[in-house]
Nucleic acid binder design. Structure first.
Length: 567
RNA sequence: CGGGGCGUAGCGCAGCCUGGUAGCGCACCUGCCUUGGGCGCAGGGGGUCGGGCGUUCAAAUCGCCCCGCCCCGACCA
């Protein structure tokens, strides 16, 4: 295509509100424009890139036997009421009414619709397995859209759903997706990692996330450099570091001592001269309406995800100050497990086997020393703490690293949740009616583009991988006043097209600097510069990523690009 | 929803405190010039100063209300 005819509105300066690199560059390079908070228009270049990403996704999904469909974005409330998610999704769901006052919503995900199709049509185990997918807009009323295309209210998702007769079949569908996702992200040129994840509001038993390491991301994952264990921080388990000081020996009795004004772990540590690892942190929580005292080692943080899972609770919150006083008789800062009879007590495993620790006394401005779990109070032990960098790997003991990441894909084993709530059953070989076991699998299309920009950019702009760049090569005559350059550039451009390369001819009447800057900014992987060396029959072939440059004969330029682009 | 910041030409910003003709750079248009990294010169177009109400002879500027956007937090597949 001829650049002079295209709409590629590049900017010298990034809009003030863009903070993360991918947002700044996508706007500056004329890929996207914002319509409203978390709502973006994808202009010509973005659309070309997204179409390429979607094509890769399609090819790999089709390769595992998945069948593409397109479901509605507009859903009746009844469907979501059946699964129970009409209420579960809360304010995150866009809701509207039709002219008759009937409730509708915009689809945030499509388990309900897919399940409703399946239950209407699937009758026999002989029809299984099935994998159905679509690439479609999702709508989520995010509390806080941010970071350009990374967290938005309307976005493209490839979502697929598997239907199997039994757990073994689901394993197979899950593995197929896992492999397909690897191929998709490999082909898109991303460096990514696969981590264990928790299932959240989707429900289900097993789940993995595909993550791209980036400071622009919002998820934290821990990773073991030694054995490869990796998990979302919400889910990660670890060996805690050893307490800094050994516990006092013996069957000592809890003993109150005055701690005036010392409320935080740090203040008590400073006051007693003992490390934070000697203290029990007491957090009063409410899980599905029931009061719970959660105990952690002083230096550890509660993982709310793990806590909710341990409680089997769907809604958890910290207790209000008046609740704490009612249940324990003291304010936050002096709370502890000894004598806490009105609450269920659960403790992190790092406290199991510890002796004679310090805890709040349930009396304002007092703490207890010599508190021992199992002797001075009874608690259930669970993994409740958030892993931290430097903890030991649960598998091999090596120190864990913490990385910030962008989630680009997520696969779930749903189990029977939707089949049961929505009545999706088939007859098995024995003629018995059994529920179908499901999986659901998502890829954020725009996040692939954003993550690629985050991962591959420099001071001049983006350097997109060949597979997802809007064009593979741009042919740039340096001096558009020179007919010979124009002619050679046009020939090379045509030769590239003849080889099936997505080529762009920069035929604009601009100074060379402008053309170079623009080409770098929008991130075309290869540039053929037609300039002075044309007199010797040579042009320059420049790779955007790394800026390596080579002189090649005019006649070889297109084939050379083709060769390098295939690498 | 809590905290903070911002809203003046397409983009980046000044002007506001101390009320009195709306400015700068880039971009855009015309002409000349130039042609290997956002070139130069000359001329030109473009503004409900986010919106409403109020104060005032007079409001971008002061007051009140509202809206929008961004960041932090809460929340989140």
């Amino acid at each position: 295509m001829h650049w002079s005819k295209l709409f590629i509105p590049t900017l010298r300066e990034a809009p003030a509100e863009a903070e993360v690199v991918s947002h700044q560059l996508l706007v500056r390079a004329g890929y996207i424009r914002q319509l409203s908070a978390g709502i973006y228009s994808y202009l010509f270049l973005a659309q070309r890139s997204l179409l390429k990403i979607m094509q890769i996704v399609r090819e790999e999904m089709d390769a595992i036997g998945a069948q593409e469909m397109l479901l509605p974005a507009l859903h009746p409330a009844e469907l979501w009421q059946e699964s129970g998610r009409w209420t579960v999704m809360g304010d995150n769901m866009f809701r509207l009414k039709d002219r008759f006052g009937r409730d509708l919503c915009l689809g945030m995900t499509h388990e309900e619709v897919m399940t409703s199709i399946a239950r209407g049509e699937l009758r026999s185990y002989k029809q299984l397995p099935q994998i159905w997918y679509q690439i479609q807009n999702k709508f989520r009323d995010e509390p806080r859209p941010k970071s350009g295309l990374l967290r938005v209210r309307q976005f493209l998702m490839k979502d697929s759903y598997s239907f199997d007769l039994d757990a073994e079949g689901l394993d197979d569908s899950y593995q197929k997706h896992h492999q397909a996702y690897r191929r998709i992200f490999d082909r898109c040129g991303l460096n990514y990692l696969v981590v264990e994840a928790h299932s959240g509001a989707m429900g289900g038993s097993q789940s993995h996330e595909f993550m791209v390491a980036s400071d622009a991301g919002e998820d934290f994952v821990v990773q073991c450099g030694s054995c490869g264990y990796s998990a979302n921080l919400e889910k990660a388990v670890s060996q805690p570091r050893a307490p800094e000081l050994a516990d006092p020996e013996g069957d000592l009795t809890p003993e109150p001592f005055h701690t005036p004004g010392r409320k935080t772990i740090a203040e008590v540590a400073e006051f007693t001269g003992l490390p934070e690892t000697c203290q029990m942190k007491s957090l009063v929580m409410v899980a599905d309406g029931h009061p719970v005292l959660a105990l952690l080692r002083g230096d550890h943080q509660l993982s709310e995800t793990k806590f909710a899972a341990a409680m089997g609770a769907s809604e958890i919150r910290p207790a209000h100050p008046e609740e704490m006083r009612r249940w324990l008789g003291a304010d936050a800062g002096s709370l502890g497990p000894v004598g806490a009879s009105k609450l269920r007590i659960i403790a992190d495993e790092a406290l199991n086997g510890r002796r004679n620790m310090i805890a709040g006394a349930n009396r304002d401005d007092y703490h207890l020393r010599h508190v021992t779990p199992g002797e001075d109070f009874v608690a259930e032990f669970h993994d409740l703490r958030q892993a931290v960098a430097g903890d030991g790997c649960i598998n091999c003991g090596a120190p864990l690293e913490l990385r910030k990441t962008i989630e680009i894909g997520h696969i779930f084993k749903l189990g029977y949740k939707y089949a049961e709530s929505m009545g999706l059953r088939v007859l098995n070989a024995a003629g018995e009616e059994v529920p179908v076991i499901m999986g659901s699998y998502g890829i954020g299309i725009e996040r692939i583009l954003s993550a690629a920009v985050e991962q591959r950019h420099d001071a001049d702009g983006m350097a997109l991988p060949v597979a997802i760049a809007p064009f593979v090569v741009v042919v740039t005559p340096v001096n558009s006043a020179e007919a010979a350059q124009r002619r050679a550039a046009e020939e090379i451009y045509q030769a590239c097209r003849a080889l099936g390369l997505d080529a762009l001819l920069d035929d604009r009447d601009e100074r060379p600097g402008v053309k170079f800057k623009d080409a770098d900014l929008i991130g075309i992987p290869f540039r053929v510069t037609v300039g002075k060396k044309l007199a010797q029959g040579k042009v320059e072939l420049v790779e955007r990523h790394g800026k390596a440059s080579a002189d090649v004969p005019v006649a070889d330029a297109a084939t050379e690009v083709k060769k390098r682009a295939a690498m």
